[in-house]
Amino acid sequence: MIPKGNIVAATLVGLIMAGITGFILLVIAISWFSNAPFGLANAPAQPIAFPHTAHAGSVDDGGLGMECEFCHRNVTKGDSATVPALQQCWYCHQKVSGGDEEAQAEIDKLVTAYSDGVPVNWERVHRLPDHVRFVHEAHIRHFTMGDTPETQLEVKEVCTVCHGEVAKMEEVQPKQFQSLKMGTCLDCHRKYDVPTDCTICHK
């Protein structure tokens, strides 16, 4: 026979435990379905499935071996790498067709969007916080024009330092090669003896 008081206490403890478990489950559920960088979900689906493997992948892997900066043209000139204008995609794809029907369907989407003049709303995958200034051009300059072999890379090799081997990714994942948190930046800045003053990155 359990005294009455213990039953009340046990019920209370049980309710609290249930509440805590429910809360944890809720947090997991929310993070499971929300996108990076906080969530665990995959990269957001792009309006047109763009395979980096087919474009930038090496010729041996069935790609075209294109340079990163052929499409992300601003990467050697300015702050952001930029997604190319639709016209640039269309310029090749008015002639180049997809290998199979599935690929052709995606290219058709692109050609239709271009001829209708409707912009494609690409989903942004990598996003830095608002208070960070990151200049792609300066980093590429550092890694291509340095004195040591480590800093005399090709442009497309420089991209892999932070973004990983995008040429081998079917779609770019938000959980990528580097976490792109402040520690990542600082490790590298210290390694190459670059200033680590706050105002170098924070604006």
Partner: peptide, 14 residues
């Protein structure tokens, strides 16, 4: 808020 090596009094907002 700190003094950086270029003589600026910096406010780090974050």
């Amino acid at each position: 808020t700190y003094h950086n090596d270029q003589g600026l009094n910096v406010q780090v907002y974050n």
